[in-house]
Computed example of a mutant assay.
Amino acid sequence: MEPSDFLTRLWAESAHLAAFAADRDLGAPVPTCPGMNVGEVVRHLGSVHRAVIDWVRAQRRPEDWDRRPDDGDVIRWFRAGAAELHDELGRRPPDEPCDTWSPEDRTVGFWWRRMAHETTVHRVDVEAAYGPIGPVDAEFAADGADEVLSLYLVQRFGRGGRGRPAAARTVGVAAGSRVWRVTFDAASAEVTAELPDDADAVVIGDPAAVYLWLWGRRGDDAVRVCGDRAAAADLRAALAAATG
């Protein structure tokens, strides 16, 4: 994908989420985020957008930021923050040095990609509260599968002591033409772009289904799990800990 595609996606997904939730019941429960309703998911995402704005401007992780609308209009507040984030990121080239939480990518482009996927996943959450979810572009979804595996799982493995398997696991993941070998144990995780011959399990599906399965937004019925289903479940548990 071209870097500009992420910025375009960020804007489109933000606009769609706001338009979709406007004039609906914001108290509707979100099945993909147990214990949260639509208003809380929208407020969470708006808070994340504002945290990144502050992070980029100050070039360090913010200690505090705007987390809720003063007037209670969460949709208006969300739209304003999404527009400000898009403008703030868009005025900077993707290769411009920028502080991030990834030691391997200290550029503005990190935030272009991260916010595009953050917003898309939560758009899916909001749609799921009211009915069927809309499509996710295959190329973008495959990139998102790569991001959650190569970035979150590897760099945030075992957060809070959670998601560590009792035994070493090797799981293959195939999302369309993109493939990954995921090896993880109680100490760390490693991801490479190959499909293993010695996998305990292989998770296969179209890119959108695999992307959302990895993020815990779709169940096993959305993908095909070959081999040891417990190993695939261990991967999902490790991802839940890394992304939660």
Rank of each mutant, 00 (worst) to 15 (best):
G172W: 05
R113Q: 09
W180S: 03
A189D: 14
T119D: 08
L153N: 06
S188I: 11
S150D: 13
G161R: 14
T119V: 11
A167H: 14
T192K: 02
R178D: 15
A145R: 03
V191M: 02
D125W: 06
A145T: 13
A145F: 04
E104W: 10
A189S: 12
T120P: 04
V148A: 08
Q155K: 08
V179M: 07
D125N: 10
R114G: 02
R159T: 13
G134I: 11
F157V: 07
D105W: 03
P103G: 11
Q155R: 09
P103S: 14
G160Q: 02
D137C: 05
A187V: 15
V108W: 04
R169V: 05
A187E: 15
W112Y: 10
A128S: 15
I133S: 14
A166W: 08
M115E: 09
V136R: 03
R181T: 14
E147D: 06
R114S: 01
S177L: 14
F110W: 06
R114T: 02
W112G: 05
A166P: 03
G163L: 01
G161E: 06
R169D: 09
R169N: 11
G158M: 04
D105T: 10
D105Y: 02
W112M: 02
R106D: 07
A186R: 12
D105M: 10
A116E: 00
T120C: 11
V136P: 06
Y130P: 12
A186G: 15
H117A: 00
R106T: 01
G160F: 10
D185A: 09
V182R: 00
F110R: 01
